[in-house]
Design a protein around this nucleic acid. Sequence first.
DNA 1: AATCAAACAGACAGACCTGTCTACCCTTTT
DNA 2: AAAAGGGTAGACAGGTCTGTCTGTTTGATT
Lengths: 189, 189
Amino acid sequence: MNDMASKPAPTSAARERILRTAHDLFYGEGVRATGIDRVIADAGVTKATFYRHFPSKNDLVEAFLHFRHERWMTWFDDALARHASEGPMAVVHALREWFTQSTFRGCAFINTVVELGGSVPAFEAISRGHKQDMTDSIRRSLPADASSEANASAIALAVDGAIIRAQYTHDAEAALLPLSRLIQALVSR
Amino acid sequence: MNDMASKPAPTSAARERILRTAHDLFYGEGVRATGIDRVIADAGVTKATFYRHFPSKNDLVEAFLHFRHERWMTWFDDALARHASEGPMAVVHALREWFTQSTFRGCAFINTVVELGGSVPAFEAISRGHKQDMTDSIRRSLPADASSEANASAIALAVDGAIIRAQYTHDAEAALLPLSRLIQALVSR
DNA sequence: AATCAAACAGACAGACCTGTCTACCCTTTT
DNA sequence: AAAAGGGTAGACAGGTCTGTCTGTTTGATT
């Protein structure tokens, strides 16, 4: 007997379309600014189908954050590897790729925490996990010595500052230049 | 003759109450999360009175940002002066005062830009002005040499990162420790 | 061929949001 | 005394939001 009969398919064409559509809208225009109806219309599904896969909007937001995490970390690790020859400056060159994209609108995790405040603690926890993973990636890109842990944490903090600055100035270099200065100072002590 | 007859009083008890109420709600719960009705109820005025002073919600948000700017910069300059004996670390001690307040919920300007996206360019411009003034205050707290300008810009970027980290970790020291490390590295080259 | 899950189609409820409008009151100024 | 500005009180319009519901069609498995 199968007592999982009530669960929808864990994966399906409709579910994928909903998730990808939600990703583009939530990231590009904001979670709060994007209504469920808009996701449904753009994904080309119906309300019943949508609610079969995602019982509430919060469930969709959570799926969006996980999806975004996978996507972003894969890109970030790859970009750091491609710029490994730049040493500790690899992160600056990686971020430049991101900041200059026309779709850039800051960090999805920071944005979501700011937009929804502390009203959904689960989102904050997911965001902390994301930032921890980002910090670990940065640490792995540094020479492994006694200070790499603390340096990675400091660089990650500066990266968040750079993301925010790129977001409100719409100027990648205005964010990357001070970031370079900070990293340079940190690793050349 | 008085051709300003149609303008409401530039200052009045009701207007002050609306603005202070809006400040607490907009900062504490978010601009988007706070409805006009809530501001009106908490301020103890009526809708007609509210709309006499602020023709639209956006007008109130703009007044809120100016009010917040005055309030925050006054505190920040004072805090930097009080911790001047700490040298370049003054900013860390100043921020500790803020981060440990129970009402701390990040930077009102970053939050507003993130919440409303680019939908209201005026808010982005006000936020850039605020960050410029913050950077200038930081610069004035540093020894005036050839690198103070660039250092202030870098520290301001790190401060934004620290604000964000304090906001999503709810842990002041988790933000202040890496910030200290960055500043220390920067000024001790 | 029968069955069943998944998707389609779209009406509907109930809440909340911004902003308008009518009517009355009180205080200050003229 | 009268006029006028700022306030109280609250109904109302028109839109948007999340989420529920009824019923139909399609397609794959059995």
